[in-house]
Amino acid sequence: MFEARFETGETLIKIVDAMKELVEDCNIDCSTTGMSMQAMDQSHVSLVALMLQKEFFGSFRCDRSISLGLNLLSFSKILKCASKEDAITLKAEDGGDVLTLMFESKDGSRVSEFEMKLMDIDSEHLGIPETEYKAVVTMPSGEFQRIVRDLGIIGDTVGIGCEKDGVRFSVTGDLGSGNVVLKQNTSADKPDLATLIELEEPVELSFALRYLSLFTKATGLSPQASLSMSPEVPLVVEYKIDDETASYLRYYLAPKVDE
């Protein structure tokens, strides 16, 4: 038996919305430690990784590890039947082929239940090596979204160059070029607006804006996003879902390299 209750159902809706354009079908793995998911996009250029620790949930029970094979578009459609304020409980029997979704209004006056068919999905799990990144930029997630959107007007590839006191996003396209520099800024009174740079050595890498734009669908999950980079390895964009329990949504993106 698996049962997990999201006290704030809106978080689950945001998580699914932040994954569904990148990944069509996926296995959500449930175990005694929590819920997790790892899936690549169809072109195998990016990967989305979700970790929700059991302590994140209002209540969590998982007697036996199970994989829930889900079509994220269908999942998202059913979740649209929930109200923003609802608590959402997911339930599945061991060896069952349906996922039960229960939506409860705040005052408990309305309870709805839906069943969704589960699928058998062959998923390839990739081993992600533990990496000490040379540069980690933490910035307001809305700022990252805006930069990706603005630079996407000019071109399709962004250069991200990180130095001690700032990070530069630059783009060149048919109609011209542009760049945005974000300087280190520790807004002590508003930590959500801070830009922090942890640097071991300067790093400069290029990435496809199309994927970064899909990653920014997670903006509503966290006020801050972090970008971790090292030379010649995939970028990690992380949105913390819950700081206390180390629950997160992470995206990995392979760099573009000069031929």
């Binding site: 690549m40 195998h44 250029v45 799990h125 990739l126 090596p129 995939p234 000069d258």
Partner: peptide, 14 residues
């Protein structure tokens, strides 16, 4: 021109 790398070039099968 820059070439898009695939993730499999960095992350192996576990």
């Amino acid at each position: 021109p820059r070439k898009q790398r695939k993730l499999g070039q960095f992350f192996g099968a576990p």
